[in-house]
């Protein structure tokens, strides 16, 4: 559906997008994730044809967006950042206008409008002036205008921006339903949003694509991250040293010190063969084992990791090293 090939975009000296390539298949729901200023909006504007890339090519449905006629945009529904609307007309007038601009014939206009109104749950707001609607309804109206003309591809720039939790949940559900029959590309800096709605995640940082893949795939790539957290208690002289000598200890953290009786939290690489061994050696040394758990990496952790350190390939290689070492 979308093919982005080595795309860069500069605004004068500012490089907003640097050599990004990715593909989005028909029917996928893909999330752009990144901190503010990562280039999400620029990337979306490039895909909607708002401006052309400095370098590279963008194909929508196999056609070059900047060489084809505006008719190609019929396949595209766009909810722009901050959801711009004609605020001085009623929701109904607004949708009728958009339907006309999207080339829906006068005969079918009423049907098309009522269909998106139903999908977005807008019927009670139809007669009200768009600018005076609540933010949730305005967002629905923004989605409704994008949906008019039944485009195959929806591009939603921060669709839940500035909504309250209930409205966010509603919009997410709506996006989920829409995603059943469409290709959707949405951007957000809110992590649970991607988790809730997207099948695939593209993480952008400072204009670069730093990671991409499904949530499971990203977690898989960061398997090193799957760790054991062990909390132990005991009295010893050089406890830190002892703990570090246990194979595969990544990190030792002193939690509490009560007159020599110390609580430590240690992070270990996960490996089923080791679990019992670790537990035994701790017990043999005369410590109490307080807690033994696997730490799950949340999307936040992945995001922070990827964005702050940009570990991509290294995660995989460290895992293989670990596995080869576990044999002896």
């Amino acid at each position: 559906m979308i093919s982005v090939q080595n795309v860069s975009k500069s605004f004068g000296p500012v490089k907003a997008i640097q050599n990004i390539s990715f593909q989005i298949k028909k029917g996928e729901v893909v999330g752009f994730l990144g901190p503010n200023g990562a280039g999400k909006t620029t990337m979306m504007r490039l895909i909607t044809g708002f401006f052309p890339p400095t370098e590279g090519m963008i194909f929508v449905d196999g056609q070059d967006l900047f060489k084809s006629t505006p008719e190609l945009r019929k396949k595209l529904g766009y909810l722009a950042e901050h959801n711009p609307l004609y605020r001085d007309v009623t929701a109904q007038e607004f949708l009728n206008y958009v339907a006309a601009l999207k080339g829906i014939s006068f005969k079918n206009r009423k049907k098309a409008v009522s269909s998106v109104v139903e999908q977005c749950g807008l019927s009670i707001a139809l007669k009200r002036v768009a600018g005076k609607l609540s933010k949730g309804f305005q967002q629905r109206l923004g989605l409704a205008q994008a949906l008019l003309g039944d485009p195959e591809l929806l591009i939603l720039d921060e669709p839940t921006n500035g909504l309250d939790p209930q409205q966010i949940a509603e919009i997410r559900n709506l996006i989920k339903t829409l995603g059943q029959s469409r290709t959707i590309l949405l951007s957000t800096h809110i992590l649970p949003e991607v988790k809730a709605t997207c099948q695939r995640i593209l993480i952008l940082n400072q204009g670069r694509l730093v990671a991409s893949g499904s949530l499971e795939h990203l977690e898989e790539n960061l398997r090193r991250s799957e760790e054991l957290v062990v909390t132990i208690r005991g009295i010893w002289r050089n406890g830190d040293q002892f703990l570090r000598n246990i194979p595969d200890v990544l990190e030792v953290e002193l939690k509490e010190d009560r007159n020599g009786e110390r609580d430590y939290q240690i992070r270990l690489r996960k490996g089923s063969e080791f679990r019992s061994q670790i537990a035994r050696s701790i017990m043999e040394a005369g410590f109490e084992l307080l807690e033994f758990k696997t730490s799950e990496w949340s999307l936040e952790d992945i995001f922070m990791k990827v964005v702050t350190q940009e570990v991509k390939a290294t995660a995989v290689s460290s895992e293989t090293v670990f596995h080869s070492g576990s044999g002896d």
């Binding site: 504007r45 909607t48 044809g49 708002f50 006629t69 505006p70 008719e71 190609l72 945009r73 019929k74 595209l76 766009y78 722009a80 950042e81 901050h82 711009p84 609307l85 004609y86 605020r87 958009v98 601009l101 999207k102 080339g103 205008q145």
Partner: peptide
Amino acid sequence: KSGTLELLFSYPIS
């Protein structure tokens, strides 16, 4: 100013 021009540019009109 209101950003609706961007909306207009996303529609199939020249």
